[in-house]
Design a protein around this nucleic acid. Structure first.
Lengths: 230, 230
DNA sequence: GCAAAAGTGTTAATCATACACCCATGT
DNA sequence: ACATGGGTGTATGATTAACACTTTTGC
């Protein structure tokens, strides 16, 4: 590093990530129980210090991989928190991201630096260390806003899903219930789903058609300036 | 600062600000001609290093005040840029903000550390130092998205303005032309303007009614969950 | 009186909403 | 046969988009 920079004070910088998951019932966030100070034995988001040779995205992937065994998630930058007293050790900025993951596609691996990991319903969060409740609240609002105009929700489901599963997910994220027929109409009219021809059987009711997200078609529509809308 | 933090590498952190101004004709951005390396004699955004005892907002205000004589602007965090090679001196993050200002309400003061300052139309930007063209492009898009659902544009106008002036501003930000009658209807229906009873005279055409932004009414509407919409 | 910008309503099309019954399967 | 969730259409109201002429002033 060049000397010019050494004249300026340098804060510590962490990356924190709100990992959203959906188990078919509730929108949840992945929490980590800390093994070290500060906030030892308390729950927080997954996070860690930024290395100087890493972009933010690489750092998030390293952290999620080492601390939870997660890889290849959908990521988006959320906000950068810089309050003076957000970390008792000193001035620490947090460049925060959120991630979307289908919990059924990963086995959580508790890293060496943590006591425990768990999915916690967004409705029922404990008091977290640092300002992490505030970060989650901002992420929740951002996701709810985003999901109404971009189909990010598909990252949270299995590759094939029924229309009802998709609707339940949207209702969890938005925190409101939607009319089934109108939901069907909007989703099918948007053209971002392809039907697989398969059905979900084995349940004690009429087998539901399984759909898949048509990513090719979605990207084509996006290029044409199309706007998805719920 | 506690020793725990000294084990971790610390990047340098700058704050950069896209200052938007509107002169009645075009949406512009305030640029600074650098007196020092890197990018000496080139144009960049206004920015500077974060001090450890400052929040981001305080740092932005310090920078805008020292480098341009601007104070009390509307500010919003934009994004944090962390590319490995965005600064030739080493690893430097940029927590970027955007600001809205009415250029007629301030006299620009060129600070000691700059060669020059100037307003530059967003349509006609030079190649800037660092990744600042990219930052401006993101800010432009963010502002265009924001202006359709929140009346931020009022920060850019005089306290009193005609409907045509407001429409011209919206057209500059959105980069498209709007139907005058429909614009009138939407704006007046939203209830966020109060008419002042005065008119703009002295022009060689029919005097236009002067309006003002009704901030009290706007905040009341926001609390009731109202969503402004263009 | 003419140039320049201000002000103003109606209609048609589109979109969003509300709403209820039959269907296919498992037990 | 009954319980469960799946699948589907229509009518009404609300919103948006398109569109042109008259008014007021300065010169």
């Amino acid at each position: 590093m060049n000397n010019d920079l050494s004249h300026y004070p340098r804060p510590s910088v962490t990356i924190d990530c709100v990992v959203f998951g959906y188990d078919g019932e509730q929108l949840s966030v992945l929490l980590l129980n800390r093994k070290e100070e500060p906030f030892v034995n308390q729950w927080t988001l997954l996070g860690g210090f930024l290395n100087l040779d890493e972009t933010f995205e690489v750092a998030v992937e390293r952290i999620l991989s080492h601390k939870a065994g997660l890889a290849g998630l959908y990521l988006e930058q959320l906000y950068t928190f810089g309050g003076l007293d957000r970390d008792p050790r000193g001035r620490v900025l947090s460049v925060s991201y959120y991630a979307l993951v289908n919990p059924r596609q990963f086995e959580l691996v508790v890293g060496k630096m943590a006591n425990d990991l768990r999915w916690c319903s967004i409705q029922d969060l404990p008091v977290l260390g640092f300002d992490h409740n505030r970060i989650i609240e901002m992420a929740r609002r951002r996701l709810a806003a985003k999901v109404t105009y971009q189909p990010v929700g598909f990252e949270l489901l299995n590759e094939q899903f029924t229309m009802t599963e998709l609707q339940d997910l949207y209702e969890s994220i938005l925190g409101e219930s939607l009319d089934r027929r109108n939901f069907y109409k909007k989703i099918t009219a948007s053209g971002i789903l392809k039907s697989t021809g398969e059905r979900r059987t084995g349940l004690k009711s009429r087998p539901a058609e399984l759909f898949a997200f048509d990513k090719t078609r979605y990207e084509q529509l996006m290029q044409e300036g199309f706007q998805f809308k719920i």
